[in-house]
Design a protein around this nucleic acid. Sequence first.
RNA 1: CGGGGCGUGGCGCAGUUUGGUAGCGCACCUGGUUUGGGACCAGGGGGCCGCAGGUUCGAAUCCUGUCGCCCCGACCA
Length: 478
Amino acid sequence: MAQEKKMVEEITSMEEDFAQWYTDIIKKAQLCEYSGVRGCMVIQPYGYAIWENIQKNLDARFKKTGVENVYMPMFIPENLLQREKDHVEGFAPEVAWVTHGGTEKLQERLCVRPTSETLFCEHYAGAIRSYRDLPKLYNQWCSVVRWEKTTRPFLRSAEFLWQEGHTAHATAEEAQERTIQMLNVYADFCEQELAIPVIKGQKTDKEKFAGAHETYTIESMMHDGKALQSGTSHNFGDGFAKAFGIQYLNDNNELTHVHQTSWGMSTRIIGAIIMVHGDDAGLKLPPRIAPIQAVIVPVAQHKEGVLERANALYDQLSEKFRMKLDASEKSPGWKFSEYEMRGVPVRIELGPKDIENNQAVLVSRIDRSKTFVSLDNIEEELAKMLDKIQAQMLEAAKQNREEKTSSAVTYEEFKQIVEEKGGFVKAMWCGDEACEMKIKEDTTATSRCIPFEQEQLADTCVCCGKPATKMVYWGKAY
RNA sequence: CGGGGCGUGGCGCAGUUUGGUAGCGCACCUGGUUUGGGACCAGGGGGCCGCAGGUUCGAAUCCUGUCGCCCCGACCA
């Protein structure tokens, strides 16, 4: 595989320094900027446009399953947050507190939501009376605040945008079904729209969400061999219902606790898009969510008729695609690099020679391959190329994940792989948290998930040698 | 919270060791020539040198304090 030629010196190569590459991409693609507020970022128009496309698509998928959007307060009174023990303990270290209203000290401090389980629960406690009120399938798009010690754009910021779905059901079975259903929505969204293949599975008790009975996750593999938890779906059982007194009368007139779920995906997924698809020339955006699917770069635009034709082409293609025409005075070469860095899937070059031949040049972001197409059927050709790029990106991401997935039977093998190769390591686990801790201690790798698709690699735990029936994906994670 | 680094036009930096008129590259503005992979020439605008004290005839530079940010760890989406 030939390394792509680097056209712009301002992006550090992935090989040289992956962390620097990541921040360079964000800067050059103008996704976000550091703000004057500690740990918080300014999401720029291009970055926000990606988020809007993600939102639009996910929101439609949610609604198709019957989910309704609501909005909850951003403040949570301290007593409310403390209602569920595990939940508070999980979040207490990273909540921001409001202690004053104007100049007066508040009698009870308010936390800025790190997540809204408690608010939804309080609301459900009042709103649910009868089995006829169920299920409640709510979601909200909002930002949450977690006082992180170390932050990185998109991957971990003190405030981030997300959606959090919260549902209440009559039975445990229904809640479990919904938990898996939403995990599948995320997985399908990632693969189909973002071209990011994911591993679906369950979190170990150690890694599960504070207050959850079970946590399910989709895990994806970045280009540097580190894993990223890309979305989670939790089954709360009736734990929160008991803590918050959410009860209903069933059809036998018996008072019963509801069963709940919650599920979320955040702007962190933009970090995944960058680190799964990007290369040394910049960002690569999957056509389905790219704010600009194709950019028209006129060549020799001062010449008679070029801009007019480019404008007409823009008008025509804008009917079906998200387009941009860059008629600025920058040189064509500058524009080529610019839109490559920003990950625009297709560039359309249109110059005097093309116009003379009634053609345009389509250039793919994947490999800079050029295709000369007639202006008469450019719509079909562009659609074809975008589909192809989408498929190529998913394929490349799958291949990268395969290359970075290993399995280990002995502990020596395991440690060596984590240290030298990185990536996912599949290995058997006895189910004991002590082994998880030891593995983390020895290698800094954590259990990513117990995948739904199990393999029996061995009969004993990779760490302690005791009998094991579960295969776990391990790896260093963001 | 530990370990490291950095605060100087919008961005990236030099200048600090040895105090003496604030500089360079990019970006920006004007005009011209250019235009199929980050064009060139000429002219121009823009800086309480993070902040607060101190030393000094004089501080970006020395001293004290303070605030902020970035990177690497531990904790987390």
